[in-house]
Nucleic acid binder design. Structure first.
Lengths: 182, 182
DNA sequence: TGACTTTCTGTCAGTGGATGACAGTTCGTC
DNA sequence: GACGAACTGTCATCCACTGACAGAAAGTCA
């Protein structure tokens, strides 16, 4: 029952934001359209933005969990690439949700701001799994950037089945960026 | 006169946040401690967070401006590296401000969230100067990550005169990260 | 100097996000 | 049917943020 309400709130929030925009969508209205109170809304989501971002919130910890399962001694890049495979599978399993979140992220800067913060937490989790340090954190941040780039490509081509290939393509471009005359 | 008030508000905000924390620091109190109204505070800063981040706000556009002055046809990495030299000079000229902002950014997640959003705008500006595209945006994002890593090192060693060297070091580490057995 | 315009500020009123406290309700369990 | 836990509604409150209006300050030109 609880998960039903949460999903309904998320759906209602997305619908309203697409119709009238993020600012004009009040938490009270979202809650009312589902039949609960504003107070209850904030028991499900810490902030208004989270109602939209919740569907992809578990992705970060999932990647970090996979990263912890990698063999010790493995180099950062292959370990991260392997861990991100759970993200690849996730978007392939439910491309509609990811596309919807991305569309709203592009039109509403407030939403994008919260998304950046979410990603920042993800990067922290990844770095922690690899034994935190400034360099490690940078590597994880770079990987996240490559992932975002891959998602952007998937979004533009409306095909989230090739996220893995796009991720590899982004990483290849990165190589030619940092290495002169690769 | 106007810049004086702005600087005083920023100083008061930082002082209060360090003493009682970000949440307990009200915009009204900051304004009152400087002798102006809360309404006036929000005429100087769009958000409470901006009062703290304002001192480094001009950095992004400055880098982008420099990037536009690079010779056309120059590869992205050298162009970006050259453009970031204005950032290197900036932190070397006023290390105290950067150190203070970084300290608050670490202790207050709300502040860090806004900072991430600010950086995102910077990246957009850089990408635009290089002829926007998903890859270009990723390159600019990577450069910003390297810059943050360099700043972190400078902060930890309490020496902002070597930001340029740290930036180059971060880029070198990046190379060995994305390239197998470099 | 005085009239005029621009810019900045204070006051007031209001919206809405977010939280704490308390009471009532639902629901599973024994 | 009684009990306890999880969930929800109601109420009150704080504060970030905004629009509208009026007054003060400061610069401009005659």
């Amino acid at each position: 029952m609880k998960e039903t309400i949460r999903a309904e709130l998320t759906a209602a929030a997305m619908r309203s934001i697409e119709e009238v925009g993020f600012a004009a969508t009040t938490a009270s209205a979202i809650a009312a359209s589902v039949g609960v109170t504003e107070r209850t809304f904030f028991r499900y989501f810490a902030t208004k933005e989270d109602a939209v971002l919740q569907p992809i919130e578990a992705l970060g910890p999932a990647i970090a969990g996979e990263l912890r399962r990698r063999p010790p001694g493995e180099a950062p890049l292959p370990a991260l690439r392997a861990a991100f495979e759970v993200a690849v599978d996730s978007v392939a399993a439910d491309p509609a949700t990811m596309a919807a979140v991305m569309r709203l992220n592009r039109s509403e800067p407030a939403l994008r701001g919260r998304h950046l913060q979410q990603q920042d937490l993800w990067v922290s989790g990844l770095a922690e799994a690899l034994g935190d340090s400034p360099e490690i954190r940078m590597f994880c941040g770079v990987m996240m950037l490559a992932w975002e780039t891959a998602l952007t490509r998937c979004y533009e081509r409306d095909d989230f089945t090739r996220a893995g290939a796009e991720l590899d393509a982004a990483l290849a471009e990165l190589r030619s960026f940092v290495s002169p005359a690769g």
